[in-house]
Design a binder for these strands. Structure first.
Ligand SMILES: [Mn+2]
Ligand SMILES: [Mn+2]
Ligand SMILES: [Zn+2]
Ligand SMILES: [Zn+2]
Lengths: 151, 151
DNA sequence: TCGCAAATAGGAATTATTCCTATTATGAGA
DNA sequence: TCTCATAATAGGAATAATTCCTATTTGCGA
């Protein structure tokens, strides 16, 4: 995401706050800006340490509270994870993830084929499907080359 | 899974323990038995409280330790989750999950179409894919009917 | 600008998980 | 079957992630 796009995203959120009678605080802006600027799907602690560079007095609790609020409002998403910490994603376009089982890195990818996937009939018995998410697991480029080096 | 199938599963694990020089303890058997008997993808605490009925003195730590060990050996799998607790799955057949966004319930389903999913070319740039996991999100039957009741 | 409700900072509390270590019990060998 | 070495366990302490509490601050409507 370009810096201009991030700016737009934040501006849009400010407008949404006004509309919903929610305060557009500096903390909220910076947290969203930080998340929108990266494709890394960071955890709360990572967002905290980065936002802190611009808002040195921000608290970790505010980061957690804000990330949850943004998720509730549908502005960002929480990514399911095998690890024991929550990870977040500002990319709300329909997309999927490649997860490196070595370093934990999560990368986005898109698939027209999956976007038009129709759930099998057996699924209808389970419930109403709202969305489809693919997780590909493997070893990322970086981890593969490091693996090669060490052998 | 039928009770007989669960028994076979546990028997197979006992044999594997012998082969690998790992002790086949009562605790390990009961933990695996409990997980194999349910399709709920329970968390450690849930497994603990159930196994406890048969082994009242088992410790929570043993449950955590054993679940990890079983996962390391490839006997069970850890399921990625949005929640802040790890969930486990004894079903090692190739399958996918329907996750209820209201109650968190995870149900298995099978799909030949999805099993043959070929990652788009862009993924090759990210790394080497080892496995494909589909997660359908929606509202399960139960949550849907309760939703209807309350409106 | 003023006043107030909403939001924050900072620390305490809670929850999930892991670590530590004295004790127990599996299983190889006699 | 009995014995013994040691892998594994129980239970409690420690740690890590997240949430709660509350005095103070701040956004923003009037
Ligand atoms: Mn993403
Ligand atoms: Mn499953
Ligand atoms: Zn990697
Ligand atoms: Zn449900």
């Amino acid at each position: 995401m370009t810096s201009a796009q991030v700016g737009q995203r934040v501006a849009g959120f400010i407008a949404a706050c006004r509309r919903q009678g929610v305060k557009a605080t500096r903390q909220r802006m910076e947290i969203l800006r930080e998340l929108a600027a990266t494709g890394e799907h960071p955890d709360a602690e990572t967002v905290f340490s980065r936002v802190r560079r611009r808002l040195p007095s921000i608290s970790l609790d505010t980061v957690y509270r804000t990330l949850h609020m943004l998720q509730e409002k549908g502005v960002i998403a929480r990514v399911p994870s095998m690890q024991d910490r929550a990870r977040f994603d500002a990319n709300m376009d329909r997309h999927h993830h490649f997860v490196c089982t070595v370093c934990g890195r999560i990368s986005d990818f898109y698939s027209a084929a999956l976007d038009s996937f129709a759930p099998p009939p057996a699924v209808r018995a389970l419930g109403a499907v709202d969305s489809v998410h693919i997780e590909l697991r493997g070893r990322c480029r970086k981890c593969r080359s490091e693996l090669k080096k060490n052998k």
